[in-house]
Amino acid sequence: MSSLPDGTNGPHAFVTNLEQPELSDEDQHHLQRVLRLRPSDPLTISDGAHRWRPAIFGDTIEVTGEIVTVPPPKVAITIGFVVPKGDRPSWIVQKLTELGVDEIHLLSSQRSVVKWDPPKADQQRERLIRIAREAAMQSRQVRLPKIKPISGIKEATLEPGVSLAHRSGERISLKQPSIYIGPEGGWEPTELVDLPTVSLGPSV
């Protein structure tokens, strides 16, 4: 089985085309000014579609090895969460990306504290997409998680295979690959009706 980049070939970045790779201005600046890469230093590049290859840094990126294809996981994992206040959504998206989650769903519920109007929701989602990309570079992922726009829990649970996290639910397993996590105050009883629940542990 083909493996992920392990860091021995330097830092990791995303490009659109692995055949003719070009770094974004932001990534070029980060690698050169923050990570202090010099011309001819090694790095790995990925197209975010389960593929990567070794390369050499410079004003133009020179590829030095073949494209490696990493098979996708047998079970795609989706995590949804009711958006909390403050900067915690950024931290959650960062950690879920580092863990290799495939999809991240932003949710609102009856007990939501955060209320985003449509322009604010779009702005915040774009920011979280950037955070996920940075986290994927840092953790050398070869795919980028899909971050869905915020939606109400009633609409979101129309997705097939969704389970809600609840301490009285069944033991978590890969039989429930799509899990939604509620707000600090918990789900409203009406939100739990007719939906499967899974437990993340007795103290969660």
Score class of each variant (00 low, 15 high):
residue 20 Q to M: 05
residue 113 V to G: 12
residue 113 V to K: 13
residue 22 E to C: 13
residue 154 K to P: 11
residue 138 Q to W: 13
residue 145 P to E: 00
residue 74 K to A: 15
residue 135 A to S: 07
residue 129 I to T: 04
residue 66 E to I: 01
residue 130 R to V: 11
residue 8 T to R: 02
residue 202 P to F: 02
residue 90 S to N: 15
residue 145 P to M: 07
residue 59 D to Q: 14
residue 28 Q to W: 14
residue 173 S to W: 05
residue 26 E to I: 01
residue 154 K to I: 12
residue 39 P to S: 05
residue 78 T to I: 08
residue 14 F to V: 09
residue 4 L to F: 15
residue 58 G to W: 01
residue 154 K to T: 14
residue 186 G to W: 01
residue 139 S to V: 00
residue 110 Q to H: 02
residue 20 Q to S: 02
residue 153 I to H: 02
residue 102 D to F: 05
residue 16 T to K: 10
residue 122 D to P: 01
residue 42 P to R: 06
residue 77 I to S: 12
residue 204 V to D: 15
residue 191 E to Q: 09
residue 121 A to C: 05
residue 139 S to A: 10
residue 201 G to V: 11
residue 185 G to E: 11
residue 153 I to Q: 09
residue 172 I to E: 15
residue 50 H to Y: 01
residue 137 M to V: 10
residue 139 S to K: 04
residue 62 E to W: 12
residue 116 W to K: 12
residue 85 K to Q: 12
residue 160 P to L: 06
residue 153 I to P: 06
residue 17 N to R: 12
residue 115 K to M: 05
residue 11 P to L: 09
residue 154 K to D: 14
residue 96 L to V: 09
residue 129 I to V: 08
residue 43 L to F: 11
residue 156 A to K: 00
residue 23 L to H: 08
residue 134 E to L: 04
residue 161 G to F: 14
residue 102 D to M: 02
residue 199 S to R: 03
residue 35 L to W: 13
residue 161 G to Y: 12
residue 186 G to A: 14
residue 187 W to P: 14
residue 27 D to R: 04
residue 158 L to G: 14
residue 122 D to V: 02
residue 5 P to W: 00
residue 18 L to F: 05
residue 55 A to D: 11
residue 116 W to A: 04
residue 50 H to L: 11
residue 134 E to C: 10
residue 162 V to Q: 15
residue 90 S to Y: 13
residue 188 E to R: 10
residue 190 T to E: 11
